[in-house]
């Protein structure tokens, strides 16, 4: 297996005495799509931010030397007081040629001269993705890139992300709430609830007891299909019990 682009080992994040993340380990390899799923408040966004160094954490994070990251944050507040065209926004981060290629690649080249504030949710998601790939990153980190995108748009955007991975050979670490599309596109799924509940290549997690506990049997039944490894169980109080280390 190739060397990971980025590897986090036993990351913990606390705030005000509360564990937001408890010894979470995670690695993304080149050309791999790793998807984080988990309920609200399970620490998905915090984990991405910790891995990116945006929040303070304990544990170790190793990056491949010279790693170039393209990041799409969950919260991108479009400020109405800041006039900015799509083209101008991308130009802040990438040279003109790369900017045009990226906008064309994600299918929003015609939005070049429009104001960021005037874009629909789906257009904004594509513009943010274009910005992230314009710098030809080795690793794409996408935090709920589907926010504000309708259902049809979501599937299309996931296909686009998978295509970009194939073309650029980059690794992808993404947070998502849409289990269907996740299962269709992810190479590996990490199910998070402050700690790693279960993980496996995308067709194992849905049968995991921990997954069932978090998402319910119905979601699992609809998704079905997945072979994996679960190294702990939960007591009724929610404590973790390891059964095979």
């Amino acid at each position: 297996m190739s060397e990971p682009l980025i590897a986090a080992d036993r990351l913990s994040v606390h705030a005000g005495g509360v564990h937001i993340l408890d010894r979470v380990s995670l690695a993304v390899r080149p050309r791999e799509i790793v998807t984080l799923i988990g309920p609200n408040g399970s620490g998905k966004t915090t984990l991405l931010k910790a891995v990116l160094g945006l929040v303070r954490s304990e544990g170790t994070i190793r990056r491949r030397t010279g790693l170039k990251i393209g990041y799409v944050p969950q919260e991108f507040g479009r400020d109405p007081s800041l006039p900015m065209t799509v083209g101008g926004f991308l130009a802040l981060f990438a040279p003109v040629r790369a900017r045009e290629d990226a906008l064309t690649r994600v299918g929003v080249a015609e939005a070049r001269n429009r104001q960021l504030g005037a874009l629909s949710g789906g257009e904004l998601a594509r513009v943010l993705l274009a910005r992230a790939i314009a710098g030809r990153p080795d690793l794409l980190v996408l935090d709920e890139p589907m926010a504000g995108v309708d259902v049809a748009g979501e599937a299309a955007l996931y296909h686009l992300i998978a295509d970009i991975r194939d073309e650029f050979g980059c690794g992808v670490l993404l947070v998502s709430h849409d289990l269907h599309v996740v299962m269709a596109q992810a190479d590996r799924v990490v199910c998070l609830n402050r700690h790693v509940c279960c993980e496996g290549d995308a067709h194992a997690v849905v049968r995991d007891p921990a997954f069932l506990e978090l998402f319910g049997a119905r979601a699992a039944g609809e998704l079905a299909l997945y072979a994996h490894h679960h190294d702990h169980a939960h007591t009724p109080s929610g404590k973790t019990v390891c059964h095979d280390g």
Partner: peptide, 18 residues
């Protein structure tokens, strides 16, 4: 101008990308 603007638009993007 450019770093100030990148920070004003989304400081997290700039910071995450190094």
């Amino acid at each position: 101008w450019r770093p100030l603007l990148r920070n004003a638009i989304c400081g997290n993007i700039a910071a995450a990308e190094g």
